[in-house]
Simulated scan of single mutants.
Amino acid sequence: MQVNWREITAARNTFAALYAACETEGFVLRQVSGPEDDVTCYSLNSINAPHFEDEIASAHCVTVVGGPHAAACPAEVAAYADYVVTGEGEHTLPRLLRAIEAGETRPIPGVATQDGICPPDHTVFLPAYPPFSQFKGYIEISRGCPFGCAYCQTPCIFGRRMRHRPVDEIARYAARFRDARFVTPNALAYGSDDGIHPRLDRVECLLRALDKNQIYFGTFPSEVRPEFVTDESLDLISTYCANRRLHFGAQSGSDRVLGLLRRGHTVADVENALDLCRDHGFTPVVDFIVGLPCEEDEDELATLALIREVTRRGRAHVHLFIPLPGTPMANLRPKALLSEMQRDLGRLALNGKISGSWGDPERRFYRNR
């Protein structure tokens, strides 16, 4: 049975991980630019999913769809796809492919069809699966997030308990690269038992093991949280890592809004992280969400003030609120931006101080080829 993987730029790292997982079970995923026999697999997010719906619905082959959108809206996706992987794919996808190959019709845990949804019966144990094999990808060092931010799909898909890949395995795969870059919800939470209280001794153990690499840690795609930015954590990054930028999320300049978002930190934590970056010679790169439905005008102006402060010391990455399925804010819509916010964001962008998209979310998320 030939198993194909639909090439989508936003899903490259997912392809690397699932190629490795399927390979261990005897299935080789062949990259294709459209659906082909016998089976074609897709990984979709909630922005690009509508662009592939007609292609999947009209495909003359068995279609399997996973990814964040499938996990959040399994019944919707099952209306146009044959099978929907509703969560983590490393165990479920090979299990499903074996069933398809054998012609089995029984429900597969973690898979939805038009007949209904069979709940998953497992949680992925990261050390059981390689981060990649033939096709290289960023190494996922941790999965899951305990904070439950109201706009974020991560805890909805991967749970609120962090799981970590062992140091020796990370080092073994990192040895295939010159630069070591990682995927994690919060790099400085690596090794933490609860994901809330850092274990910097374990972070140092990881960084020390990567002595053959040029390490990038706390920068995309391994951002950190502002309250994890301390003298001790920055000392570690200064000692072991090549990056002199630190990427963390503020999201809002209003403590009231941060509380409603369930962010778990304050504006003071962000300002302290900015001061510490300056003291340790790091350039901060700070994420913000604008157009939050829970904002009043004064909250939006407080966010703009914090963006201005950030851009005096570093850079801001700004994007418009996107209501993602499966999250507590899924049914809300962005608030129209104040003219002052629009004017200043445009001016800062022209001066190279900010990046992102606060008008069209597809510019950030949708990549077809």
Rank of each mutant, 00 (worst) to 15 (best):
N213D: 11
N368A: 13
D255V: 08
L234V: 09
M162H: 01
I307T: 00
R165T: 13
G67V: 01
A180M: 08
D231H: 14
G159C: 10
L93F: 10
V167L: 11
D211K: 12
A273M: 06
I322S: 07
R176H: 14
H60T: 12
L246T: 07
P50N: 12
P361Y: 11
L345H: 00
G144K: 06
R172I: 00
A49W: 01
R315P: 04
V85H: 05
P226Y: 10
A71F: 01
T40F: 02
A49E: 08
R367W: 10
R363V: 13
L206K: 05
S339W: 04
I47F: 13
D279H: 09
E36V: 10
F132A: 04
A57E: 13
V111D: 02
G249T: 07
R98A: 15
W358V: 02
G326I: 09
A78L: 07
P127Y: 13
L126F: 11
R343K: 12
E204K: 07
E36N: 04
M329R: 02
E140V: 10
C145F: 09
A242D: 10
L206Q: 05
A336M: 09
S233A: 14
V39R: 00
G218N: 08
L274E: 04
V270Q: 02
N272C: 10
P35F: 03
E309S: 11
L210V: 11
H69D: 11
E90Q: 11
G110M: 06
N272A: 12
A72W: 00
M162Q: 14
K335T: 13
A71T: 03
E53G: 01
R244E: 09
C73K: 08
P109E: 10
D269W: 05
F125S: 14
G34N: 05
E104A: 14
R12A: 11
L345F: 02
D201Q: 08
A21L: 08
N186F: 07
N213E: 12
I8R: 01
C73I: 00
S58L: 12
L258R: 01
T303N: 02
A187H: 03
V39P: 01
L274I: 11
E23N: 13
P127C: 13
R308I: 01
F27L: 08
A20K: 02
A102R: 14
E25G: 00
I170P: 00
G259K: 14
T40S: 08
L246A: 09
C294L: 15
